[in-house]
Simulated scan of single mutants.
Amino acid sequence: MGRVTARRPVVRVREGAVSTRPDTLVTEEPLEIRLGGTPLAVTMRTPGDDFALATGFLVSEGVVAEAEDIAGISYCGDARDEDGARTYNTVDVRLAPHVPAPDIAGLERNVYTTSSCGLCGKASLDAVRTTARWELDRERPHGVGTGLLARLPDRLRAAQRVFDRTGGLHAAALFSATGELLDVREDVGRHNAVDKVVGRAARDGALPLRDALLMVSGRASFELAQKAVMAGIPVLAAVSAPSSLAVDLAEEAGLTLVGFLRGSSMNIYAGSHRLALPAASALSAASAVDTGSAADTGSATETG
């Protein structure tokens, strides 16, 4: 796996027996993203797909929207460790001449605020509204079955090759409206995993992803909902809970937001019009159940 994993010694205790052996861990290293040579952001990530990560990050910030907006991406040769070896932990993105120069200072403030404590609600929603390149089509996709959604978590988990070795990674996957796995990426950060799949799609000229479903392995935060909207993805599903601001954004942008997707159970927080729901009688009976208690039970199992 190269730099994706690392080996470290560990003392294991199993049923009273003590042993020492090497353990496989997921690698975590900083990635500095520069824009035209100017430092913009630093994120802790699992090395790999760094150019896609940087592209997806810029898509979510409204700086770029397609492959033609980027003139080039390269690792910075001046980024070296204390021994003088090249680290490959700094990338520089050069925008195409037709792309307006972004407000670097404003982007730096947004990145810092989002990563540390969250933007205030109205400002966050306004920011996405003013920078989103595409409106989500309310008619696409249509009739997505809940049975199809129910199969996505297991399919996402089965595609997590590095998780099998380390147990320490989040994942994001793109599926077609018919359930075909289009791409999957892993990273120590759930935001980075989404940036990687969005960035790869952008570099392939596939944005907007008007008929895609985005499945994530953890919570559905505002930032993940934002990334889905900015990439034109109409459906976001998560195995755990969404935040209140994620639901607000989903309702305003027309995003279908599904949480606590586990087996045949799920909570639909917004955009149910895209889904083929069970018969009305079954839906009516289910509405009598307090979904809040289900969410409370599910949240106790959240792992990241």
Rank of each mutant, 00 (worst) to 15 (best):
F260N: 12
N89S: 13
I104Q: 10
K122R: 13
A101Q: 15
P100W: 01
A54L: 04
P39S: 02
G304T: 10
A177F: 08
E108P: 08
L283G: 02
S299D: 14
R185P: 04
R185W: 04
P100M: 08
D78E: 15
R12W: 11
L169D: 00
L125H: 12
P9N: 01
L261D: 02
A285T: 08
S221I: 06
A238D: 04
E302K: 09
A123N: 10
R138N: 07
A150R: 01
D248N: 14
S115Q: 14
A173N: 03
A67L: 02
R185C: 02
L213K: 08
D164G: 14
D126H: 07
A202M: 05
A54I: 07
A52Q: 10
A96K: 05
D187C: 07
A85L: 12
G263N: 02
S240P: 10
A67F: 04
G199D: 01
V59D: 06
R157V: 09
S243C: 09
L257Q: 09
V197L: 01
E139F: 11
D248F: 05
S243P: 07
V11F: 05
L125V: 12
G118L: 08
V99G: 06
A96V: 03
L136M: 01
A285K: 12
A85F: 10
E66D: 13
T256L: 00
E68D: 13
T256H: 09
D103G: 08
R157Y: 05
A132H: 11
L58G: 00
T166S: 03
G218Q: 08
I70M: 07
R34F: 08
G298K: 03
V188Y: 10
R155Q: 15
S176L: 04
D296V: 15
R138S: 13
Q226P: 06
L152N: 07
T38F: 06
G36E: 03
G118K: 01
V42T: 15
V18T: 11
V4W: 05
C117A: 14
D92C: 00
V239M: 14
